[in-house]
Structure formats: structure tokens, C-alpha cells
Design a protein around this nucleic acid. Structure first.
Lengths: 184, 184
DNA sequence: CCACTCATGTAAAAAGTTACATGATTCG
DNA sequence: CGAATCATGTAACTTTTTACATGAGTGG
């Protein structure tokens, strides 16, 4: 049995929380993993099929009225086993691809105004993210209090907050570079 | 003319620094963009061909003795134009995919020891990165002093340093979660 | 002389995104 | 009543990674 890829692993993880259709899983991922993981339909459905072929999940067709049929998937005992094994595998760093830095590297080909615009747009995004993370932390602490998963969920969010903070500090420092207006 | 994709844009950027073969570009990218951008041969060669078909670069075959022939590419005036235009395009955030956080999210399915191992391995990597960035900063400041590009190059490196710092602080905080040994 | 790296590149496979299709229902 | 959204999923396309191919030189 060939090893799971990351998407399949993530999907199995979500299915440990309860059964669901591809559509449900997409929704759930949106709510829970959103800030550090994203799956699109184009991956979810084929992945579920391959997981089923491998015996890690089972799907059962359910009729609904007014809505299309849906296939609800459940994780199998075999599936749980490979999910748990996968969790223990070491994490491989993924190749970096940072478009902002690529542009900044060629910064001399832009005017200061143009560089500043890139930086400020990034800054706004990070500011938004930072506030979102704070919101989620608050929400988790009040609405999910007592759950055994809570500390881990909080840790994933605080990761985001730490990063956003660092990005904001970097923005401030880097904006100094392009402080003066360009004369024309 | 369809818009450039990111790889093509990066390659054009490298070619503004001087002509080179696919192999040269790979080497150059390794030295310069390495920390925020990575291209593999599988992308470089086909991209160069498409860039040539579009008229943004021209390749000329050169014979060498003892080594295979090589095709050296130069950026054209047209190519410079689209490169500069691309630089001004806003940066799109790319979908997050953080395997460590995915695993941490399901942390209750692991022992504390196992979680700690993941965190510490990440911590070691970030510590290494941090030191590498410091080294590069020093090197840039001494060896590249006076170059007009220097401030931008430094900014790309300090971005990495800021992030690594934040990751290290997050590690310290998060390791507290799994401080105690698991009893068995 | 054997393994490894240099130097050049191709081809196949996997992963991921985007666009489309369909029919009901609900919102303004 | 038209537009948007829900709910389900497929198909096509793009991007990216990985594995392979080749021949010369080089270090042990």
C-alpha cells in the first residue's frame, strides 16, 4: 500500500472527527484548518475515491429530497491506523515560494512608490490576519473551553499570530527603505 | 500574449542580471533566490522554451569541448518590458499548507513525546535558518557593500530572519504544552 | 577503476487550481 | 422574477516534483 499523500492524510484526519461527504469535508476544513491548510474540491473528491479504493474509508450513497444524492464517507479501522502512522512521520519543509520577496529582490527596477505599495498591501493583509487570529483565540477560549484538543488548536492559531506579528515588524523596518517620495 | 506565470517571471528577472543557460540559471537561483524561491529543472527548461516562443528571450546554441552543447538565453527588449510590467502586478497570497500545524491540530492523537519531537525538529531547523540568515547578512554587508541592490537583498534576508525568530519564540511557548514526560 | 559531481537536458507522474454542470431554494 | 447560494460533483488545465539519460572529468 503506497503511502498517503498530504491531502489524503488531512482528509482522514477530518474524518476522525466524524463522517461526511466531500462537500461536508470542504466546509469543515474551511472552518477548522483554514489558516494553515486548504483543500479544493478538485483534490477532495478524487482523494476520497482513492482512499476508498485503498480501504481506508467507506462511502455510502444517501438520497436526499430537493438536493442531489450525497456520498457520506466514514473512516475504517485500517484508515485510522494509517492516519496515526502518518502523524508520526517527520515533517518535510516545503520549498519556499514568496512572490513578495521575489519582487523586492528586484526592487531597484521599481520606483520607491511602487515598492512601498507592495509592502503596504502586504502590511494590510498581515494586520487583518493578526486581528483574525486574535478573534479566533478568544472564540476558542470561550466556546471550546475544556476540550482536550483546545491547547493544540490554540497553538496552531498562535503560530499564525506570531508570524503575522513578525511580518508586521519587518514591514515597519523595511518601509524605512522607501520612505522618501520619488522625485520626478 | 498570455501573462507570465511566476516561474517565467523569476527566470526573466534572473536574465536581467546577465545571459545564461538553464543550468546556469538554476545555479544562480540557488545562490540568490534560494531562501524565498526555488525552481527545478523540470520547470526551468520548458519555461525557457515558452519564453523563447513568446519572443521574451532568445537562445543561442554554443558548442563546448568536453561538455554537452549549451543553449545560452538572453532577455529581449520585449522580455524586459513584460518583466517590468509583471513586477508591478499585485502579489497574490498563496494558499497555506503547513504540515506541522496539521499534525499539531491532531495532537491529541499523539503522545507528548511524539509531539515534542515534531516541535523540536522544527525548532532545530529554524535555529539553523536563523544562523544562516545572519551569516548571509554579514556576507552581503561586507562583500556587496555599495551596490544599489544591497538594501533590497538585505530586506529579503531579514524577512527570513524575522520569521525564524518568531518561529523560535513560538516553539518555546508551545513546547511548554508538552513539557512533562508521558507516563506509561 | 569506481563512485561521484559537473553539465546538460527530457519525460513521466503527481499535485493543485479553475472552470463548469445541475437543479433546488431562498433572498431582495 | 432574477440573482445568489446551497449542495453535489466532474473535467480540463496548470504547476511542480521526481526520475531518468548521457558523457566527460575528478578524487580517493
Amino acid at each position: 500500500m503506497k503511502p498517503l499523500n498530504k491531502s489524503q492524510h488531512a482528509l482522514l484526519g477530518l474524518l476522525t472527527l466524524g463522517p461526511g461527504s466531500g462537500y461536508d469535508l470542504n466546509k469543515l476544513a474551511d472552518l477548522s484548518l483554514n489558516h494553515f491548510w486548504r483543500e479544493s474540491y478538485g483534490q477532495i473528491y478524487p482523494s476520497l475515491k482513492r482512499l476508498e479504493a485503498a480501504g481506508f474509508v467507506v462511502g455510502s450513497k444517501e438520497a436526499q429530497d430537493g438536493k442531489p444524492d450525497r456520498t457520506v464517507y466514514r473512516i475504517t479501522a485500517e484508515g485510522e491506523k494509517v492516519f496515526l502512522a502518518g502523524l508520526r512521520e517527520p515533517v518535510a519543509p516545503r520549498p519556499p515560494r514568496n512572490e513578495l520577496l521575489l519582487k523586492l529582490f528586484f526592487g531597484t527596477h521599481m520606483s520607491r512608490d511602487e515598492v512601498r505599495e507592495h509592502l503596504q498591501s502586504f502590511q494590510r493583509r498581515q494586520q487583518d490576519l493578526f486581528e483574525t487570529y486574535q478573534g479566533i483565540e478568544q472564540w476558542l477560549e470561550t466556546e471550546q473551553a475544556g476540550k482536550p484538543d483546545l491547547p493544540y488548536w490554540l497553538a496552531t492559531v498562535s503560530y499564525g499570530r506570531f508570524e503575522a506579528e513578525a511580518h508586521l515588524r519587518w514591514c515597519e523596518q523595511t518601509l524605512e527603505l522607501v520612505k522618501e517620495e520619488t522625485r520626478d
